[in-house]
Design a protein around this nucleic acid. Structure first.
Lengths: 242, 242
DNA sequence: CGATCAATTGAAGAACGTCAACGACCGTGG
DNA sequence: CCACGGTCGTTGACGTTCTTCAATTGATCG
């Protein structure tokens, strides 16, 4: 039996100053001195796709920034119904100072690398560093905006609109290639994960994907990629204005 | 024609130190000196029930704390479907430093009194006052937690569970009287507002309210109050665990 | 090449929305 | 004081959307 090396804590030897999320993560506003203080207490951790990062209610020993990959936050009802309540992309922050546990599960959707800070020293640092507090607030407010858009989607959009909105969101924030007249998007989630994200069943997700395909708005054959053939029609199908 | 006096800006002459939300609002962590700085730039504004406080995209000249009453945040799709995305109760904060407009409408659900700060001086004060930034962050994170619970409700709960969850939430945080064996809750929202809050139609809200009444879990005759007869059964109907 | 998991497809049903009518309540003005 | 209009709530009949259940196909990986 082979141990998956990705699940083991890994200490990478790269400097904060060369970090890919240096200017967007919690450390964005920090100056060189402040960065050094963070550097002293950071460590890296990796998780492979599908692995659980943290269970609801589990003691939260560290807080972290996502460096690479995608993690999902989800909540579950007692009978097993599950709803994703957030996606953590690179530079997003996990955990909050002053709270010892979180109210949802965190799972690695793709392989994930986290930049971790032990909670206690981090909290102390936050109290002494307005730049950190300020950035944490900005990140929380951005997440709040995203959460509110998602509430509109969950409460009022049709299945077709949900799927169109989802694909449009991918098109906006996932790095994408342009192939002739269509945008190629990597799709790291299964139908089941997408369903949990959109408040649907996996069958409905599959049907709506294929409906958009039949309408010539998107195309796919591979499981890992989808092509957006008509971005205007996609937007029109999302139900959003402008 | 009579001008509604509640719609006019009113300057109340009470000190921050005697404010009913002194220990929960954005100023919670402020010391006496910091409080004085806030006092210098604050002013009160009142809105009567149903009145719009701020439209989406409108320039945001001030930020504010809710002192009394309830305000609702809502988003609307182009064809008119609307979804409430938050409720502002006393001590909740409206607006965010660094952003000149907001992405949703704010409406007074009941008569509302706001403690307003002009945006520019407030932002300056925030930059110089870690206590304020810290509290703003806490408030944002609390709202984020609430938003995530709401996403689970909107995405995965049945109509009956939504109504039960809603009533249970009222029971927890609205000041309530105990009348014999039942809790009396003031109900300030119409069926339509509740529907927009829960992602339902007003007819479904009405039907589920009456279903819970027929089951002996709640009771009502007056439009303004409901009585919870069986709090355990109500909780069981909410779908939440524990 | 089987074994497994993801995705698709169909058929049937449940839950909720839509449309419409009606009734209760409330403030207003005659 | 009563008549009136408007808003809000209730109720019924019906339709649509999405879920549920089940079977099948397709893809991937030892």
């Amino acid at each position: 039996m082979q141990i998956n090396i990705m699940t083991l804590p890994i200490l990478r030897d790269f400097k904060c100053s060369h970090c890919p999320i240096r200017h967007r993560a919690v450390c964005a506003h920090c100056d060189t001195d402040e960065l050094q203080l963070l550097e002293n207490i950071k460590s890296y951790r990796s998780f492979s796709a599908g692995e659980s990062i943290l269970w609801r209610g589990e003691p939260l020993d560290y807080v972290a920034s996502v460096v690479t990959g995608v993690a999902a936050l989800s909540k579950t009802l007692e009978d097993g119904r599950t709803q994703m309540v957030g996606l953590l992309l690179p530079s997003d922050f996990m955990g909050r100072p002053g709270r010892k546990q979180i109210a949802f599960d965190v799972t690695a959707t793709t392989d994930v690398t986290l930049c971790c800070f032990d909670r206690k020293p981090f909290e102390k640092l936050v109290n002494d560093t307005p730049h950190l507090t300020q950035r944490l607030m900005e990140l929380a407010l951005d997440e709040l905006d995203a959460a509110r858009d998602w509430m509109l989607l969950l409460g009022r959009k049709t299945a077709r609109e949900k799927i169109a909105t989802f694909i449009e969101m991918l098109a906006r924030r996932v790095h994408m290639e342009k192939d002739q007249d269509s945008l190629i998007l990597p799709l790291s989630m299964t139908r089941d994960q997408i369903a949990n994200f959109l408040g649907l069943t996996l069958e409905t997700v599959s049907r709506q994907f294929n409906a958009l395909k039949k309408d010539g708005i998107i195309d796919f054959s591979d499981r890992k990629f989808i092509a957006v053939k008509n971005i205007e029609a996609l937007h029109a199908a999302s139900g959003d204005d402008s």
